[in-house]
């Protein structure tokens, strides 16, 4: 299977990329890792007239902590995230997510920014981005916007990026001390998109109470979903099995999956709950904090 013809524009710098976007408008697509776009083009499900290749922009490859954020550039590969020592040591949710996306070869090319821009309803990064409260730096020739993950992920395969814009960076607020995270995914095999997935990030106070919670689920709706009520229910409380059980029920109510080869509506919804429960327990376990009355 071979893609339809297109015009190829190589962007060597951010300016070149933005200029090309301004020039071609809606006919153009950014080409990042290409791990979603190129297969779609081979099946001729996507037929962009112009591809603007941002891979040559090495200045976009960074993964670094600055100004209270972890900043991930638009061409940083999933594999670099997986291997990054600050991420491994301080961003457990991201580290756990990075290990289960696609397969290890695809991860050497696919990008976090590309995944968010693709916004596959079963994608993993959108879930982690919601739970970790990421912000996306969106830029066009007309200027730069900082968009929260909630606003960025509009609908299936639709984001807040305008035709003449691109995402240049994804930012994760630097987790305060006593922050722990986990990511759980059910996949039929390595390289499969999730049947259901859940990402969790909890910040505790020294008494073992949850000071801030991020909980999101994926593959169970038109896009990744925040379990906002669950987050609220946990905040200010010491986690107990009972509380986790209630959050699981909330997650199941939030889930609104469709049936496909991966599973029925019922199964996916139930699994969203199971995985939220497991991720919450993991985060609690990792914290090692047993506040008063804690049970998990």
């Amino acid at each position: 299977m071979f893609p339809a013809q297109f015009t190829y524009e190589r962007a060597r710098s951010e300016d070149e990329a933005l200029a090309a976007l301004a020039k071609y408008g809606s006919d153009a697509r950014i080409l990042a890792g290409g791990q979603s776009l190129i297969p779609a083009m081979r099946y001729r499900l996507a037929r962009p007239g112009v591809l603007i290749d941002i891979n040559p922009i090495t200045a976009f490859e960074y993964i670094e902590e600055r100004d209270g954020y972890l900043s991930v550039g638009a061409t940083a590969r999933d594999y670099a995230i997986e291997m990054s020592s600050p991420i491994r040591s301080r961003y457990q949710l991201l580290a756990a997510t990075s290990k289960v996306i696609a397969d290890p070869v695809v991860r050497q090319t696919g990008t976090l920014a590309g995944s968010l821009c693709h916004n596959d309803p079963a994608g993993d990064w959108p879930v982690a981005a919601l739970a970790a409260r990421a912000q996306i730096v969106v830029r066009g020739v007309r200027g730069t916007r900082l968009v929260s993950a909630d606003d960025f992920l509009v609908d299936s395969f639709t984001t807040a990026v305008g035709d003449d814009e691109m995402a240049v960076e994804v930012r994760f607020p630097k987790p305060p001390p006593l922050t722990y995270g986990a990511y759980h995914k059910i996949e039929r095999k390595v390289g499969d998109f999730a049947t259901a997935c859940a990402g969790v990030q909890l910040t505790f106070d020294t008494g073992g109470r949850v000071a801030a919670a991020g909980i999101a689920i994926g593959a169970v709706g038109a896009k990744a979903l925040r379990v906002a009520d669950g987050e609220m229910m946990m905040t200010g409380y010491v986690p107990t099995e009972e509380l986790i059980g209630e959050v699981v029920e909330v997650a199941k109510r939030v889930a609104d999956p469709v049936a496909d080869n991966r599973g029925s509506v019922q199964y996916k919804r139930e699994m969203a709950g199971v995985l939220v429960g497991r991720a919450l327990r993991d985060a609690c376990r990792l914290s090692g904090l047993k506040g008063e009355g804690a049970s998990w």
Binding site: D103, R188, K189, V190, G191, D192, F193, N261
Partner: peptide, 23 residues
């Protein structure tokens, strides 16, 4: 698998699953 309308539901390796070294 086929749905009731006769559509093949497993037309490539993303849906017709071949186990990897991990499974």
């Amino acid at each position: 698998k086929y749905d009731e309308a006769g559509n093949n539901l497993n037309t490539n390796f993303t849906e017709y699953l071949v186990p990897t070294a991990l499974e």
